[in-house]
Design a protein around this nucleic acid. Sequence first.
DNA 1: TTCTCGCCTGAATCATCATTCACTCATTGG
DNA 2: CCAATGAGTGAATGATGATTCAGGCGAGAA
Lengths: 222, 222
Amino acid sequence: MPYRRTENVVRRLAAREQAILAAATALAAEGGMAAVQIATVAERAGIAAGTVYRYFPSKNDLVAEVMTTVGGRELKAMAAAADAAPGPLSALASCIATFAARALAERKLAWAVIAEPVDPQVDSMRLDFRQSLAAEVEMRIKAAITRGLLPDQDAQVAAPAIVGALMEGLLGPLAPTYEANGPAREAVQTATLLSLRALGIVDARARGLVAQVALPLPAPSP
Amino acid sequence: MPYRRTENVVRRLAAREQAILAAATALAAEGGMAAVQIATVAERAGIAAGTVYRYFPSKNDLVAEVMTTVGGRELKAMAAAADAAPGPLSALASCIATFAARALAERKLAWAVIAEPVDPQVDSMRLDFRQSLAAEVEMRIKAAITRGLLPDQDAQVAAPAIVGALMEGLLGPLAPTYEANGPAREAVQTATLLSLRALGIVDARARGLVAQVALPLPAPSP
DNA sequence: TTCTCGCCTGAATCATCATTCACTCATTGG
DNA sequence: CCAATGAGTGAATGATGATTCAGGCGAGAA
């Protein structure tokens, strides 16, 4: 048995895989999907291009993993925020505002993961995420409808529409660039308000549904 | 003077340019921007690849022209529908519904022109279109606000958000595929209703703002 | 220390497309 | 019919980026 993967080696391998993933994510956050190139990722991770292929069978797999990781993190945050809310309506509001705030904090990354075009193969992966995103919102909408807190409506159209509105209104190329915390927070509130109104909540602000979720913009997770 | 562009030649040249444009547009409508390749466009137009470059200095210029053409057509339709409406609110409703209905009728093309990613250079062209799109909606929103028909709000965020909601709700990959006229028309109404509610119109349906604009889905312009 | 693995390297290869250009050919005016 | 002109051709070229692979090298086992 002249060679075996010692604990040490295993750890190093895992660390390297994380480094690659981190490099790819950082590049996506800085320059969008176009910036995620094997050579660039490798350089940033401090390894040679070929090495990347020891960890990921193809670029698509790498990108897919980035999406899964980032997407999962966001979904979890949304769900957590919603679950912590006192009632269905404020859960809905929290869910929406959380998504908006977090996406805005990592604008380019969010755009890259949600919207930017990629290889068709990877696209189906992205679809899953968008699907989950919409599903999360849809669930909250339905819950509110069930309790009579929202007018009856087609949640299956409404949910993606809300997601689209947030994306376009906050992340898209048309959206203004928010510098400091102030305007960004306002934008999140405006967008949330708009979304809730779209669903039929007329006086969200008056009811404290918006103010209550005026989260600080979270620092991007490491 | 052994050679001159006769009337005949000029006509032929113009026809060929149109053929190229038409081929590119058709390809975009069928397979998205990725399908718009010089070789493919040329083949579809019945000419050699090199010939395309006698008419367009680069692929980007060709794509830009496709976008301008398609985009202009849509903007004109929206403006016309809105201008024909009796009041500011129904103008707004018409504007939104028209966009929704037409985009849905040529789903892939609309997606390609509005949302699908492309070369950064071309992207600025697309931005112009999106900008105009949002501007058109924004103008209608502001008009309604001015007359006190809508609650005061930030139209600059609301307009792109509406556009985003329609895109994602109707065109995006998550949106269900609408086959016949029936469900599609309903989807347009649902989306329109949602948009109007987002802006603060609580009872759009009751007021006949939605039903009134239940346009037939237009055949795609040739 | 020495012998093996198997990880790492990065230049070479492959694939995909846009773009060019030397050449052919049709049209035009004389 | 002929010469001139420029449209049309399509194979060759270029650029970009993913992927491969033959060989170097360092870490574990004896």
